[in-house]
């Protein structure tokens, strides 16, 4: 019997604290697999956010720090500048990165800090019970938009990768989805390029992973993945928005 896939050793034996069907676990596995493949586990520092993935340091066995809400990119900047030989990445959700932490994120990108950002977009604040986030779709019902998000009242969903791609600092900006095996394999390729951008010291890199929140969307995990394909991906299209020379 030939081994095709094996759970990465960087994933700990501890059970995840996520709801059944939450794609956070898929993103964790992709990160752990890439760190092992690129031989970075020993020198990685992951800055974990506030949100559902706040306990991420229990699940991926690397060095880790826990940032204040939204400040992961600022913290990662300091760590990378003091330890330039380390591989420094942040793992943030949409409430963390796109709402309270947008200033830190945009400025870290504009300065071209040599950090990698994994940005999970599930369209709401999952941990606190599904409130409206900057990435909530028009018409989507959440606990703070009970009649659906209205543009005249709540504005429009925020496209972070497109926004950051306009800056000069970033070396690699992309968006992938976690809804099907095909898209997950593609997401791993994008993440690998983002990590390569940092290893080669080219600049800031960010990959948005379009994710689901079955519990707060009040759907089964399979229905939530279908909703990503039908409703979310037309608004947040998959693609690479900025690829600097040398990332490949």
């Amino acid at each position: 019997m030939k081994l095709i896939y094996k759970k990465p050793d960087a994933i700990t034996e501890r059970d995840t604290t996520y709801c059944p069907g939450c794609p956070h676990g898929i993103a964790h596995r992709l990160v752990a697999e890439l760190l092992e493949e690129m031989d970075l586990v020993k020198k990685t520092v992951i800055v974990w956010p506030v949100g559902c993935s706040v306990f991420g340091y229990y699940f991926i066995a690397t060095d880790a720090v826990e940032a204040a809400h939204g400040r992961a990119c600022a913290m990662a900047t300091g760590i990378k500048r003091v330890h330039p030989e380390s591989f420094v990445m942040t793992y943030q959700g949409d409430g963390d990165l796109a709402s309270i932490g947008i200033a830190e994120t945009v400025h870290a990108a504009a300065r071209g800090e040599r950090i990698s950002v994994v940005y999970i977009n599930n369209g709401n604040y999952g941990m606190t019970g599904g409130q409206m986030a900057p990435t909530t779709l028009i018409g989507q019902v959440t606990t703070t938009s009970p009649y659906g998000r209205k543009p005249e009242l709540n504005g429009f969903p925020m496209h972070v990768p497109e926004m950051l791609a306009a800056l000069d600092g970033p070396a690699y900006i992309a968006r992938a989805a976690l809804d099907s095996p095909q898209h997950i394999i593609q997401a791993k390729k994008f993440l690998k390029k983002a990590f390569t951008a940092q290893v080669k010291n080219l600049g800031f890199s960010l990959v948005e992973l379009v994710s689901a929140c079955p519990t707060n969307w009040k759907m089964t995990p399979v229905e939530a993945m279908e909703r990503i394909r039908k409703e979310v991906l037309p608004v947040f299209p998959i693609g690479e928005f900025k690829v600097a020379k040398g990332v490949e």
Binding site: M1, K2, K6, T16, C22, P221
Partner: peptide, 17 residues
């Protein structure tokens, strides 16, 4: 290996051929 790729809890530990 599709089951391994999509499993969010790393419950599918190994796939062999």
């Amino acid at each position: 290996g599709f089951c391994y790729i999509i499993c969010p809890d790393m419950a599918i530990q190994e796939v062999r051929r």
